[in-house]
Simulated assay, not measured.
Amino acid sequence: MQITFIGGGNMASAIISGLVKQGGHGISVVEPSADKRAQLAQTYGVTALEQPPQQLSTDDVVVLAVKPQQLKDVCLSLAPVLGNALVVSIAAGVGIAALARWLGSDRIVRVMPNTPAMVGKGVSGLFAPLGVGASDKKNAADIMAAVGRVFWLESESGIDDITAISGSGPAYVFYFIESMIAEARALGFDDATARQLVLGTFDGAVALAKQSDLDVATLRANVTSKGGTTERAIARFEAEGVKAAIQAGMQDCRARSVELGQILSQD
């Protein structure tokens, strides 16, 4: 594939890194910062440009990787040179209808990635309207598979759903890790040991959950001996409404995703 990234930020860099490891792609990055262009070219061996190519072709793939607030202007400037290239948008919030208006094309796949893509462990939700063909969907999926797992969504509203789960989910996990590390320090462990204890616990628990045939509720119950230490901790979590708060937070996250989409998709 010939792939042109518009924007060379962290997520774009993560995807580029994965694609370079895959090999077989021609990759260009349009990035206004001269320092960033030099870094991208040196690190990944890609072509770094200040402006988009003068003309793109039907066989090209354009990855929109700019901030949502910049997306309208970027799309309007890109439209005259787009040449019916496939567009893959990883920008949050902006819907396909708005992108199609600004680009003058509906050959678009919308993606919600997440930050573990930076270490090749990403989870991405993808949605394409009915007019997008199987080969275009495969190309979009292949790009995101370079940095992790991909899931096709049945409707565009699924982007809001997956935002509440995997899109924002790493922050929920980091929040829990942060809380446990803070308490480990309070219990007398030094910073390095507290970090290792907590991250090792998460790493082991996730590995066990992935390898076990048991569901996570059963795995949790297996650690929770009646009258024991773990049961006391879980009882406090339940009394404080931790599970309900997590679920309510996810619902709030989804609602905000919908709100931002409505705001950012306005002409």
Rank of each mutant, 00 (worst) to 15 (best):
M11L: 14
A12P: 06
S17M: 07
G18H: 01
L19H: 03
V20W: 10
K21G: 06
G23D: 06
G23C: 04
G26N: 08
V29N: 01
E31R: 01
R37A: 01
R37N: 05
R37L: 01
V46S: 00
E50V: 14
E50F: 06
Q51F: 07
P52L: 04
P53C: 00
Q55K: 15
V61T: 14
L64R: 12
A65G: 07
V66W: 03
V66N: 05
K67W: 00
Q70Y: 06
V74K: 05
V74P: 03
S77E: 14
A79R: 13
P80T: 09
L82E: 13
G83Y: 14
N84M: 05
N84T: 13
A85T: 01
A85S: 12
L86D: 13
V87K: 07
A92Y: 04
G95W: 06
A97L: 12
A100K: 03
A100I: 03
R101C: 08
R101A: 15
W102L: 04
G104C: 07
S105T: 15
S105V: 08
I108T: 08
I108N: 05
M112D: 03
P116S: 11
P116A: 11
K121R: 13
G125N: 10
F127N: 03
P129E: 08
G133K: 13
K138M: 12
K138S: 14
K138V: 10
N139Q: 15
A146Y: 11
F151V: 15
F151E: 14
F151Q: 11
S155V: 10
S157R: 09
I159S: 07
I159D: 02
D160M: 00
I165G: 00
S166E: 12
G167I: 06
P170C: 03
F176M: 15
I177D: 10
M180S: 11
I181N: 02
A186P: 06
L187G: 09
L187D: 08
G188T: 08
G188M: 04
F189T: 14
D190V: 08
A192K: 12
A192I: 11
R195G: 02
Q196H: 11
Q196N: 09
L199I: 13
G200I: 09
D203K: 15
D203S: 12
A205M: 09
V206L: 15
K210E: 15
Q211V: 07
S212M: 13
L214S: 12
V216K: 09
V216Y: 06
L219N: 08
V223K: 07
K226Y: 06
G228T: 06
A233M: 09
A235I: 10
A235M: 03
A239R: 12
G241K: 12
V242N: 10
V242E: 07
K243F: 13
I246P: 00
Q251I: 08
C253E: 02
C253R: 00
R254Y: 01
A255M: 12
R256F: 05
V258P: 00
E259C: 01
L260V: 06
G261P: 02
S265N: 02
S265L: 11
S265T: 09
